[in-house]
Write a protein that binds this DNA or RNA. Structure first.
Lengths: 182, 182
DNA sequence: GAAAGCATGTAAGATGTTACATGATTCG
DNA sequence: CGAATCATGTAACATCTTACATGCTTTC
């Protein structure tokens, strides 16, 4: 049982889903490819943490819809109480920023402008899901007992991170531009 | 040549260092264990991107001090111009936050309080390095041509991220506490 | 005397990515 | 007609972590 396994278990605990669907749902919070997810789901099913029913579809390929078992739910609750691993960041831009002096000013600016665009796309994605949710629920699910509370705080987390990254990039670009103006 | 290799190359390009030292320097920006770094340095040296001199020390074990070669510097500059990979986040707390409804309120609060402590430690680390640098340089190296400019923007990046994460956790804790007050 | 820091390495195993493989449907 | 989406899987490879291995010095 690794973190990804618990992540899948957590998703399935709320809404029974297919592997394909789990992959998409997980994307914004934990990047995993389908080639990692499918074998893991099979393993979790074999070990009794999940079970699946084959759902026939006429317009689309058939799918396996996984749902959590009692054993899975117990494991999930135990995991929540265990100490949380420290977050891992792997951002190539950070390493490139360290070497800024080796490039010309235009390429340096491009690095940060590229990142701003990426963050804006991500932020719009988070905001889009958020506004869809708010429309559906007719307001923010800002109460811990609301079933969409965790979605709400996670979307807020994503949006905040992107916003902060953009601000940092803009701050750096500003310093770089001041030099140009000299 | 992977991202970690370029990261090491970037560090070495500025200051020739031992593997042990590189590991420590890299920690805040790219988590890698010594067991990954040492073999990679050996490979980079064999392929001519770096070279090393064995430095004898009386009080401590001898060390291999790596420095960049011309080939290494060319590779590094090419890498800077290549498209930057999207950042990867692997944060167990995010996955746990999704399952908040499965726990009691105390454990939920503990999750975020733990994270706040972690972020505060990290933030103090970044701020400590920053203030040491400011003392040494007698001011902020906020000009792109200053040799410590990249350190300055990276430390700022670290501090900002930690600050923002703390604010998010506090916001969540606040929502959780409001429920308690009912 | 034990623990922590400095210093380098290897081996085994876990985790993650890219490529290979298939096949239906929908949209432009 | 080609590309994208839905849907599931395997194989090979790259990357990262944990454990094994050694040994000296300083600090508590």
């Amino acid at each position: 049982m690794n973190t990804l396994a618990y992540g899948l278990l957590g998703l399935v605990a709320r809404t029974p889903s297919s592997g394909y669907d789990l992959m998409l749902q997980l994307q914004p919070y934990w990047q995993a490819k389908h080639s990692q997810i499918y074998p893991l789901l099979a393993k979790l099913e074999q070990e009794g943490y999940m079970e699946f029913t084959r759902v026939h579809q006429t317009d689309r390929p058939d799918k396996k819809v996984y749902s959590i078992t009692e054993k899975g739910e117990i494991a999930l609750k135990l995991w929540l109480a265990e100490p949380t691993a420290e977050p891992v960041v792997r951002d190539e831009l950070v390493l490139k920023a360290y070497c800024l002096q080796l490039t010309d000013d235009q390429k340096a600016r491009d690095l940060f402008m590229e990142r701003i665009e990426h963050c804006q796309e991500q932020m719009q994605m988070y905001e889009h899901i958020m506004s869809e949710m708010e429309q559906q629920l007719d307001g923010k699910p800002d109460h811990p007992d609301h079933p969409a509370f965790s979605d709400y705080i996670l979307l807020s987390w994503g949006r905040r991170r992107m916003k902060e990254d953009i601000l940092w990039c803009e701050w750096v670009l500003d310093l770089l531009k001041k030099k140009e103006a000299e």
